[in-house]
Write a protein that binds this DNA or RNA. Structure first.
Lengths: 213, 213
DNA sequence: CAAGTCAGTGAACAGTCGTACTCTCAAATG
DNA sequence: CATTTGAGAGTACGACTGTTCACTGACTTG
């Protein structure tokens, strides 16, 4: 085995990335199920046949895009929630985090929002798996806090999922609003989070067991 | 003007409906931006050219589908919220309402969930407009309740949007879960609604004006 | 009942699509 | 240095796409 990365392999990764970038660009105005293989290779400056050296399908390319978009975000949420400060500060930081990431990588988030319920099964499942992981991470971070004393694991996961779903909704709303409506969307998102957090603090106030059969 | 509906016009509406039905069926496994005009007409048992007598685009057909899926739901939410009972009962009825409608018209809801952030602009906008109307209706219904004393119109709209977004999320989750996971999804949805409602009751407990600049 | 309207047909158009071939030639291998 | 490997090019294939045009014939209208 060689200790260098290899000129050949780096070049392969380069074209692979070119395909991913080209696809992401095209997906800004259409959804994955209508994305043509030739369309991607044309935008990437490669012949159609070269596509097969990297992905079997456009669906496989989509799964790779999911990984690229969400893979690097793990831990970030937990880190933000673990920071000190009262709930109002931490809440504001969460919204700012989304705002910054969406501003920096709008195409990635648009892709996730679009394909979360899109027509390509494997991609939908990949996104669902990633979001489930996020929800679990948030739930784990919440469990560390004193406010979660007495909470069942099930309810913590419910709350984590609630937060994650609102992250996605907020990101999507930011994309729809554009730079002008950004502040308003952020304000609404903050108030929504505040209301949920308020509900959390009073979750155990009374019996609250209407669901148990 | 004739007082009868006209054999010709009813037949036209019949094929129009056939096109809508065929499209809805095909859209169960793909998204609108990849739906072909010929594909639809083939499934509807009509020649491709006949399509143009009813819709200019597949996009226009999509907009018509949005109307068909959501148009008849207006008022229902307000009616449910206006019913008597404590918040726990009304909350349960809301979830049951979604559960029933999704069970009866799964394809419609799948379409809405899929195209809410899909690749076809006009359809996205049509859905957004309908959901905004829902949010306003819910806000108006909430405003009638004594629990909303002291709430600003802005916050009521925020809360209404929160409820509507959760309706959509729940519907989509129900579709993903299938008949087996239906009860579990409904349980989580109920607990989420309960938490939001809890937050609502304590919204005005303290100052709560961190946003005002 | 004659004239006109118009929903739907059928053929033809130029494109685009995904995929299967063979081929090249620079990098990796031993 | 001789050999093998493999990323990408080039060509060709049949299938499918949206749109156009002239057309038919049942219904509507005056």
């Amino acid at each position: 085995m060689s200790h260098t990365v290899g000129v050949r392999q780096t070049q392969k990764l380069r074209t692979r990335q070119a395909l991913l970038d080209a696809a992401l660009g095209l997906l800004e105005h259409q959804s994955l199920s209508s994305l043509g293989l030739r369309e991607v290779t044309r935008a990437a400056g490669v012949t159609p046949t070269a596509f097969y050296r990297h992905f079997e399908d456009t669906a496989a390319l989509g799964v790779a895009l999911v990984e690229e978009a969400l893979g690097s975000l793990h831990g970030m949420i937990g880190a933000v929630l673990a920071e000190t400060g009262d709930s109002e500060e931490r809440l504001g930081r969460s919204v700012e985090l989304i705002l910054r990431h969406v501003g920096e990588q709008p195409a990635h988030f648009r892709f996730i929002a679009r394909e979360q319920h899109g027509g390509v099964g494997p991609v939908r499942e990949a996104i669902a798996a990633q979001l489930r992981r996020f929800a679990e991470e948030v739930a784990a971070a919440l469990a560390e806090e004193p406010e979660s004393r007495g909470w069942s694991e099930e309810d913590l996961l419910m709350l984590g999922g609630l937060y994650v779903d609102h992250m996605v909704i907020t990101a999507s709303a930011l994309l729809d609003a554009g730079p002008d409506g950004e502040r308003e969307v952020a304000g609404v998102a903050r108030r929504r989070l505040r209301l949920v957090t308020l509900g959390r603090l009073h979750w155990l106030d009374d019996a609250n067991g209407a669901d148990t059969p």
